[in-house]
Amino acid sequence: MTVEGTSASMPPRGAWTSAPSVDRSSVTTETEGAEGAEGIKLDGISLTYNQRRSPVHALKGIDLDLASDDFVCVLGPSGCGKSSLLNIIAGYLEPTEGSVWIGGTEHIEPNAQVGVVFQHANLFPWLTIAKNIEFGVKMARLPREERKRRVDAYLELVGLSHAGSQLPHQLSGGMKQRAAIARTLATDPSIVLMDEPFSALDALTRESMQLHLRSIWQKTRKCIFFITHDVDEALLLGRRIVIMHPNPGCIVQDFMNPVFVPEGEVSFSDARAGKEFVELRRFLIAQIAVGSESGSEIENVSRSGADKRTALL
């Protein structure tokens, strides 16, 4: 499977069936093709949190190229710096070293070019769903008719046409999160960042949200940078999968998802049952567990986290 415009390489077939050994130096990060006007480029990002006693090296030397229609799922043990990386891409945090490039210009401050969907829908509680979606379009000073057209289109895209006049607190968690996605997409960002957007939802809602997001991505072909704890979620949604390890946070795997269904109707239950899917999942869980063991201070916490994850599957 080759997808134009991405730099990721696949892991060798069958690699994940053997005991995984992580060799950080072997991670491929050569860049090619993604530097088009639309692409997103992370260039040598490092981040150190300055704490009085001991500085925390949260990220070190992160290079990543994203194509304008990528769907990247980021996996990694807790505390490996996923959220920190997202905050840097969004412009909320300034990296200690390195820079973020979007379409050839450096991205320094948060703006509508980089959309963010939070774990909690984070809608403006005083605005109706329609007004929430209109917010970004209004900030972009688009004419009234265009605003209305977009609001209607995005309400429809996320299946909330009937709920436009409701206030956020009147909606279920899944509906709120869909409204948040619509609000972010309505400003037409170059990339949408999502930090565990479905983790606060119950299992059924989560699955329906995954299908929703999947179909939204198929329709819009937006670049999505999707952080998740859930290996299944990553395998079902991600065209490309990135694995991070902590201490300091870095990318150890970056490959095209071999079980990704590129087009058409997706059946998640079929996908889950596939042999390759099962093996890949096992491989990824092991990879994440290795990462959490390499942490010294957080070792126990994250190992028990990894065990739990394995046990759940």
């Binding site: 969004a90 412009g91 509508a112 984070n122 403006f124 900030m139």
Partner: peptide, 23 residues
């Protein structure tokens, strides 16, 4: 998050005050 989210929707300067902080 609300403040950051508003910035990521394109709000800045006085508009942050009028449309986000005040409400």
């Amino acid at each position: 998050d609300r403040f950051n989210g508003a910035k990521s929707l394109g709000a800045k300067g006085w508009r942050l005050y009028v449309y986000v902080i005040f409400p």
